[in-house]
Simulated scan of single mutants.
Amino acid sequence: MKETFLGVDVCTDTYEQLAAKLIEDINHNRKSFIVAINPEKIMKAQEDERLRELLNKATYQIPDGIGVILASIIKGGKIRSRVTGIDMMLRLCKEAAIHGKKIFLYGAKPGVAEEAKKKLEERFPGIQIVGTMHGYEKDENVVKEAINKSDADILFVALGSPTQEYWIVKHMHSLVPKVYQGVGGSFDVVSGRLKRAPLFFQKLGLEWFYRLIKEPWRWKRQLVLPKFLIKAIRE
């Protein structure tokens, strides 16, 4: 089930429901594509028809932003908790370890995906990460060949949004993996190179506020939240 905010679809599924559906997609040889949705992306999609089409092409649009939750509550929808990109990735890693599914990590700076692989192997015993490649390889055929040779079931792409989503849509039907997720800076966080907001802020959906405290120059970007809510309520 999905709700629509200013023309952009968002799934109402929880982590548990999504994890079950994604493992089922792999088992039934179905291609699926996950994209994280937040107010900033929805507002950008108002001026960019191509971006809106891209977001709506995804199989699962996860509500990665407190603004989406607030808009759903105000409009009488069912979305009550965030499904963040990095936590969805980690949940999928956990399920992959349990169900014997293989993972490929593509993107980020040289060395980062390899570091993330080691951390994930420590965290999820038995996980099969069958390949990594940094995001600076210019030859798309080299990238695609490495992914296909790995015979991975799940591909995490860390090229930044929306570049990673455009890349997924362009290539997913000529690649072996079944599940695709654009994960932004998640490899940097998993590898330990980038610090995530403390758990207190995560649980309250206030990671944006933590980033604002750490990086006050971001305040203009945060203005998108009230603008989005006003527009969504008017809709």
Rank of each mutant, 00 (worst) to 15 (best):
M172G: 04
N148A: 02
D153M: 06
W219P: 01
K203S: 07
A19E: 11
K214C: 15
I147W: 09
S81Q: 15
Y15P: 01
N29W: 10
Q181W: 10
M43N: 08
Q17W: 04
E145L: 05
L206V: 09
G160C: 11
E47R: 15
R234I: 15
Q61K: 07
F200V: 10
G131S: 09
D87C: 12
L225I: 11
N141I: 13
A197W: 10
G182E: 07
G76K: 09
F33V: 14
L229K: 07
E235Q: 15
L105F: 02
A116I: 00
P226Y: 13
V143C: 04
E215M: 13
I79R: 02
R193Y: 15
P198I: 02
P198K: 05
S174F: 06
G100L: 02
G77R: 05
I147S: 03
N141E: 15
A158S: 12
E121C: 05
A152K: 01
Q17G: 10
K178E: 08
N148L: 02
S150G: 11
E207V: 04
V179G: 10
V176A: 14
A58N: 03
Y210W: 14
N56V: 04
V157C: 07
L22G: 06
G184C: 07
L6A: 07
G107I: 03
T163K: 15
K31Q: 00
F209E: 02
F5L: 01
V143D: 03
E207H: 04
R82V: 03
R193V: 09
